[in-house]
Design a protein around this nucleic acid. Structure first.
Length: 588
RNA sequence: GGGGGUGUGGUGUAGCGGCCUAACACGCUGCCCUGUCAAGGCAGAGAUCGCGGGUUCGAAUCCCGUCAUCCCCGCCA
């Protein structure tokens, strides 16, 4: 070993000890005679001092040293002279007096500063990711992620789960996201697919009698990027036999609650059991199936008050079968016309024609785009229903239900952040349940599973599958954290007949279904236990726990927006020889 | 596939028709300096203003195209 201690671990208790340190030069302060070298390793930073009176040889080297050089130092830990302690440094009470100094490696001047949290263009960071990861923020994130995963492994182990690996080379499933394909060398024209999730395999593990399975599983989806989406990502995959919906939800909230209690003590977190909202309720109150429960500002339906109100825009929306809903931005009555116009522009992309506003003044008439059209008793009823007081700003959207909900939901999320309506440390969980099993896909003219095609319908809704499939609910649950979808799961179908019925409903003919999922159907005939599970996006979870704005900040080597690895330059051109082996030809 | 933002020394920014022979901070190089810790002092190097075309007497600045990058929509069972 090159070191006896971590740089950041040295304290007053080590005074007098001879220590060996190894690490990077964080900063050098050369006073000519005396030279200070702040040495950094994973554990932190400690000040080392080179004094020519102690070692002429070491001092000559210390004068040559530059940022990010890799050093090996032998020296003695000393208390700093009176008044020289640095309270900003955990190791600030001591310093290491250099006796021997060895340069293990020199370093070019890095393209950006490693020793401070300066803003750097992300392309440059990704190109030199190994340097970016050397910075404190990234080291913190890497450690946080490790701690989260370690905790989950330990916790699930204690709860009787086995961690089982499933194949990365598996079979394409044209339903769902686009697959990443791996062409087969041995079988011309055939390909493996990388898993979008280990869904089928974990269900087959239940058939296999595993009963309690989990995996920290890498998943692959060839779709376009977002700030919270990467082409490959990691999910906590769980499956359990002989359970009902509530059992799976209780398990995950138990694991995550204790995780936060242990690793993030002091952060405000939802109390178990976490709120359970039906899909209907969530849409009705928040306009979204992933409601951010860190703050209120719920959507209020005033459709009945809008009907025949005298305001043509409201009336028209109601007559066309639409709705009128509003939110109360408490204390925002001072918003300027321009600010309200900006909010209006914000929701137009979602189909909203406009934004009606009513700003209640502390005194005098309200400022409003529509109040003058409404009889005063109607106006009072509206104000009362939104629980509004002088100084508040009420915002309304009228139109088709979907548009109203989406617009106000976006507006609510935007205002919640802008007005700082919540504690940035808060971790607000909730479950959304009772999703529709299938949704009508107008483009494809067919029913689409809202979760996936193995989700069991609610038993009491079974008959609806024939009469009114859109009304049938699934035994499904989504976990939402601070308005972000963090996990999703369901009780699965374990009956071949029902599974085939679902295939049929979503327009998979029996031959195709058997070709793609024959192994599942066959397995269901050999004594399949009732089972269900959940999958949780760990990158996203870590992103929120680390309070990072972007999923790339918690992934060691992420792809950029265009799905490229800019450090290694992947994807890259294929050698003709490889193409030939794989029986492939490039079509321009 | 579509919409929007951004591209100026190594990094972060300023400049947004002529005062630009491109400014500032940090970093970098050299010299000085024995108690600094964002060390300090002095001196210095470093930019064809993403690329191509156009408008103009004159373009970092305006226009068009293109590339890169980020955000969003579509997509993500």
């Amino acid at each position: 070993m090159y070191k006896t201690h971590g740089c950041g671990d040295l304290r007053a208790e080590h005074v007098g000890q001879r220590v060996e340190l190894a690490g990077w030069v964080n900063r050098r302060r050369d006073h000519g005679g005396l030279t200070f070298v702040d040495l950094r390793d994973r554990s932190g930073v400690v000040q080392t001092v080179s004094n020519p009176e102690l070692s002429q040889e070491a001092h000559a080297i210390a004068e040559q040293v530059r940022s990010e050089w890799v050093l090996h130092i032998v020296g003695e830990v000393r208390v700093r002279p009176e008044g020289m302690a640095n309270p900003n440094l955990p190791t600030g009470e001591v310093e290491v007096e250099i006796q021997e100094l060895e340069v293990l490696n020199q370093a070019k001047t890095p393209p950006f500063k490693i020793n401070e949290e300066s803003e750097v263009d992300e392309m440059v960071r990704l190109k030199y990711r190994y340097l970016d990861l050397r910075r404190e923020r990234m080291q913190r994130n890497l450690e946080l992620r490790y701690n989260v995963i370690k905790f989950i492994r330990d916790e699930l182990g204690q709860r009787g789960f086995w961690e089982i690996e499933t194949p990365i080379l598996f079979k394409a499933t044209p339903e769902g996201a686009r697959d990443y394909l791996v062409p087969s060398r041995l079988y011309p024209g055939e390909a493996y697919a990388l898993p979008q999730s280990p869904q089928q395999l974990k269900q087959l593990l239940m058939v296999a009698g595993v009963e309690r399975y989990f995996q920290i599983a890498r998943c692959f989806r060839d779709e376009d990027q977002r700030g919270d989406r990467q082409p490959e990502f990691t999910q906590l995959d769980i499956e359990m036999s002989f359970v009902e919906r509530e059992d799976v939800m209780e398990l995950l909230e138990g694991v995550y609650s204790s995780l936060i209690e242990k690793l993030f003590p002091g952060r405000p977190v939802s109390v178990v059991p976490w709120p359970r909202l039906t899909y209907q309720e969530s849409m009705d109150r928040f306009g979204s199936d992933r409601p951010d429960l860190r703050f209120g500002m719920e959507l209020v339906n005033i459709t009945d008050l809008a009907e025949g109100s005298g305001f043509k825009i409201f009336e028209g929306a109601v007559e066309a079968g639409g709705e009128v809903r509003g939110i109360n931005c408490v204390g925002c009555g001072h918003f300027s016309r321009r600010e309200i116009d900006e909010l209006t522009e914000m929701i137009k992309p979602f189909g909203a024609k406009g934004l009606a506003y009513l700003a209640l003044q502390e005194s005098g008439e309200p400022r409003s785009s529509f109040a003058k059209f409404l009889p005063s008793d109607r106006l009072d009823a509206v104000i009362k229903r939104l629980d509004a007081n002088p100084g508040d700003l009420l915002l309304f959207v009228a139109g088709e239900r979907d548009i109203v909900l989406e617009s106000l939901s976006r507006l609510r999320a935007h205002l919640g952040e802008r007005l700082e309506l919540y504690d940035p440390d808060a971790l607000s969980f909730c479950w959304v349940i009772d999703f529709p099993l299938v949704q009508w896909d107008a483009e494809g003219q067919r029913w689409d599973p809202s979760h996936h095609l193995f989700t069991a319908p609610m038993p009491e809704d079974l008959s609806l599958l024939d009469s009114d499939p859109g009304k049938a609910r699934g035994l499904q649950y989504d976990l939402v954290l601070n308005g972000e979808e963090t996990a999703g799961g369901s009780i699965r179908i374990h009956d071949r007949g029902l599974q085939e019925k679902i295939f049929e409903l979503i327009g998979l003919d029996l031959d195709t279904a058997r070709e793609r999922f024959g192994h599942m159907l066959t397995a269901f005939e050999y004594g399949t236990p009732p089972h269900g599970g959940v999958a949780s996006g760990l990158d996203r979870l870590c992103m929120i726990l680390a309070k990072e704005p972007n999923i790339r900040e918690v992934i060691a080597f992420p792809k950029n927006q265009a799905a490229r690895d800019v450090m290694a330059g992947a994807p890259s051109e294929i050698e003709p020889k490889q193409l030939e082996e794989l029986h492939l030809r490039i079509v321009e």
